[in-house]
Design a binder for these strands. Structure first.
Lengths: 338, 338
DNA sequence: TGTTGGCACTCTCGGCCCGAGAGTGCTGAA
DNA sequence: TTCAGCACTCTCGGGCCGAGAGTGCCAACA
């Protein structure tokens, strides 16, 4: 595409992003292209419309980018936007101040992302495809009831209440825990499965069954922690003035199970994903843009943080800030060993 | 107030609750009071307006209950509404299926409350004013880094990463943990504080300092777990068709810190609290009604679950179902010992 | 050939009017 | 005290209209 067309497309996107009003040839001329006449710009706009990058709400209105228009912008025209120091500092502060557990950090990540991008946000907890057992503990609740505490790599705590067939004292449990710790501590989940298989029926086998179950749940990712925040930001946008639009977005956000799948499917193995309007497979997100990136303490342990807003979104700003949040969160998690 | 006036007020509330349209004398006559003429009803309606229980959007519209009208209804006219078996079963299923940890249960409680009342919901985790230490564990992460795992009464797990001045091996830590468990296990937080005071400087004192800090945090309730759900339900109500109304509610719901305070302040020590429209101290909740009740595994450990919706709310149904959810959650927590 | 000023055309938007309809309050009679 | 009748008030939706914004096209020009 010729340079001038690109420049005009970029200008339309930029202008529409901030004003939310269809942009006409005159506005472009006075604000971006003083050397061109509005007639020239009009003919370029007509071309861009023919190419499918722009459209008009009605014959005598200005132009609005189509989904393809945004896509072209994102792929070829977008420049990296520097993040103001104030925002950088805010992100740092928020994430440094996060308490040392996954749940809290994920919530903080969602909150920060929503806040700095002024859109709705989602975040899921980092999850690995292979788990390591770091530590294990057994606490007697009742004579035949045991609480199993499992510390996975990444300082993820899991607990399970377990009704055993035979009674056990706390002393016995402590001993058993110590033995299991030396066998399994620091080992991958495979080890636990092998150990389970090797056992004869009894308390230890029952216990290890639970351990394996927890590991399975974790590795299959069917236990999911997904949070969302910043829905109120969407209400500031004219796109969501009528409630039906917001309703659809909320159906996605509040349906945790679905949201989890969506995030997992979208992020794939790419590190930055931008989905615009009709590119969304989910019908509720038509008209919305989704920007996702991954974060986590290590390459093996990755969660997703993302932003949902109208397609008329400040893409370059959103991407920059979202990535900053992801970087900050990764550092914090790394530092905490969480 | 005379019986007939009460009956008419009740009818207006009931009718308006379902239709959301101002109710006129004729509608009342044909649907509730076939033996009265519409003129008679009109004069009663005029009286109820004078009393401040009803109002009209404009001179030639039907009547709408005022906040006082709802208040009178709730205090004197509301009858207990039986819960359909299907709904009862749904509540049971949802709560029985909740995983055995507090976080998950609180989320499940909010989700269920939102679902069965078709409104937005909030829930906070049960919290006691005094904590008991059930179990404690120490895991060595790095030579000078220790993870402290603390199991409080109610199976609440807390973790803290702690950088120690002196290095310690896992064996030493295990020994120390065992000693502390026998000293503190099952004891109240006072014991931990006394033990902390009695110690000389050193690893154990550092550790106990953290333990005491966690207990403090918990007992002061400054660590808060509050979740909300079902905002999408509000969008079905005409009251929230224009986005500004929803915006205000979302500001309350998404501002966790504020929400926590609000819940704590509202519930006080009563077991059921209904706040209607202008009775709300928070300006964002004018026009909304809030219904709250408490739940938890024991009398000492109470959380709050509540519903937020338009003042035009099916109060008797909401109260009945909310209490059923609270009962179900309490049972589940009791059973899990969570 | 690309650019430009001029111009007719199209479409939205807000304001206005108006009639239908709903619901009221009042009044006088039973 | 109840009720039928009636005049009155107000909203709501539809239709109309003029202002304004923006377009596409065309002919002229460099």
């Amino acid at each position: 595409m010729e340079n001038r067309k690109q420049a005009i497309l970029r200008a339309v996107v930029k202008e529409f992003t901030t004003s939310a009003v269809p942009v006409g040839s005159q506005a472009l001329q006075t604000r971006y292209f003083v050397n061109l006449s509005s007639a020239t710009i009009r003919s370029e706009l007509a071309d861009l419309s023919d190419l499918g990058y722009l459209t008009q709400p009605h014959t005598s209105a200005g132009r609005v980018p189509t989904d393809s228009g945004y896509r072209y912008f994102v792929d070829f025209l977008m420049d990296v936007e520097p993040i103001p120091e104030r925002v950088k500092a805010f992100i740092q502060d928020e994430l440094r101040g996060a308490p040392p557990d996954v749940q809290a950090i994920v919530e903080r990540v969602a909150m920060t992302a929503a806040s700095v991008t002024q859109n709705a946000s989602v975040a899921s907890a980092p999850q690995g495809s292979r788990a390591k057992i770091k530590h294990l503990d057994l606490v007697s609740l009742e004579p035949k009831e045991v609480l199993l505490i499992l510390l996975l790599e990444g300082n993820l705590l899991r607990q399970q209440v377990l009704n055993t067939t035979e009674a056990a004292t706390q002393a016995q449990l402590t001993k058993l825990a110590a033995r299991l710790n030396s066998t399994l501590g620091g080992r991958a989940s495979e080890e636990a499965r092998r150990h389970y298989d090797s056992l004869a029926l009894g308390l230890e086998k029952e216990l290890m069954g639970r351990v394996v179950a927890v590991l399975d749940l974790y590795e299959k990712g069917s236990e999911s922690l997904v949070v969302h925040d910043g829905v109120r930001n969407l209400l500031r946008q004219p796109e969501f003035a009528e409630s039906s639009r917001l309703h659809q977005v909320l159906e996605v956000l509040e349906e945790t199970r679905y949201l989890t799948l969506l995030l997992r499917q979208l992020i794939g193995d790419s590190d930055l994903q931008i989905v615009i309007g009709s590119e969304n497979t989910s019908s509720q997100l038509q008209g919305c843009a989704v920007v996702l990136t991954s974060y986590g303490p290590s390459d093996r342990l990755k969660g997703v943080v993302g932003v949902i807003g109208p397609t008329r979104m400040a893409y370059s700003q959103t991407v920059a800030r979202l990535q900053a949040v992801a970087r900050g969160a990764s550092e914090r998690m790394n530092e905490l060993g969480v």
